[in-house]
């Protein structure tokens, strides 16, 4: 396969597709788009060597706004698609992205097993604690008392899902939190996550200004984690279970060996791939 010898130095904006996002004005996902492009520019990755796989939902529209290879198709299934891509094409930088509903509910089981498999890729979940695309229903990370949806007039009354704790318990190798209110800090977290071998999980706080307007205040609640990332899962467990959900930065860096099975077959040309599907 033809490959660029050297990657010319690209700026963050060069990683954008030019398509205008349809997110609501004020949505946190705009900043996440900025952060991702800044991270890719900082890592000087050739756009053709990056693949971004997403699920379904507002935040999952991300791939089309980037000038990298993208896949935006199956609800809750970003991780299995990304896993398949990475193990068959280990030379690519594989990112997966989506929202809290897509990642923790529809794809909840995939999330656990992606953490467990530890394939070298980065999963960015833009968490706004609501299903925005379907007009504002409670998601797995919604506070049990949130009663603003007609579907849950008294709140869900079910305790929220703690993605970072689940990620650690399931074996994720890198766990971090970032916020759309600080795109530069978020870019750093994404860079570190991509560089870290194995499955890296970035919990991205990204407000929904339409259905959770109170989340505009998140920017005042977030703060850098008071201590450096730990390598000890027991210490991480205590920290993740007691933090206030607003600690930012890398919180856990494990050293498990990434899973990368031996390649058994490959094709060089799309036509060879297509031939396999002929009747």
């Amino acid at each position: 396969m033809e490959r660029a010898e050297t990657s010319p130095s690209l700026k963050a904006r060069d990683y954008k597709s030019g398509l205008k996002p349809v997110w609501c004005p004020g949505c946190g996902d705009f900043s996440v788009l900025q952060a991702v492009t800044k991270a890719l520019a900082e890592l000087a990755l050739a756009p053709e060597d990056v693949a971004l796989v997403s699920g379904i939902g507002c935040s999952s529209r991300l791939p089309a706004y980037l000038d990298v290879y993208g896949f935006h198709a199956v609800h809750g299934r970003a991780l299995p698609v990304a896993t398949g891509l990475k193990i068959s094409r280990p030379e690519l930088t594989v990112l997966a992205a989506g929202g809290d509903g897509d990642g923790f509910s529809i794809g909840g089981n995939h999330f656990m097993h992606a953490c467990r498999r530890n394939v070298d890729m980065t999963y960015i979940v833009m968490d706004n604690q609501v299903y925005g695309m379907t007009k504002g229903q409670a998601s797995p990370t919604t506070d049990p008392e949130w009663d603003k949806s007609k579907l849950t007039p008294d709140g869900t009354q079910i305790s929220a899902y703690y993605p970072l704790v689940i990620a650690l318990a399931s074996g994720a190798n890198f766990i971090a939190r970032a916020s759309s209110s600080d795109p530069n800090g978020a870019a750093k977290v994404i860079v570190d996550a991509i560089r870290h071998p194995g499955f890296s999980f970035v919990h991205m706080l990204s407000p929904c200004v339409t259905f959770r307007p109170e989340q505009r205040l998140w920017k005042k609640s977030v703060h850098p984690a008071p201590v450096a990332a730990t390598k000890d899962p027991a210490v991480a467990a205590r920290r993740l279970m007691t933090d206030d959900n607003f600690y930012l930065g890398t919180l856990y860096e494990g050293s498990r060996k990434p899973y990368q099975p031996e390649l058994i077959a490959s094709v060089d040309l799309p036509s060879e791939l297509e031939a396999g599907f002929l009747l």
């Binding site: 053709e48 791939p63 290879y69 896949f71 094409r89």
Partner: peptide, 21 residues
């Protein structure tokens, strides 16, 4: 993926001939 200049998003949403939603 890996082919320079060929980047596109395979999108499940309705799209135009360029693949853009």
């Amino acid at each position: 993926p890996g082919m320079p200049g060929g980047q596109y998003t395979a999108d499940g949403l309705e799209h135009n001939p360029l693949g853009n939603p």
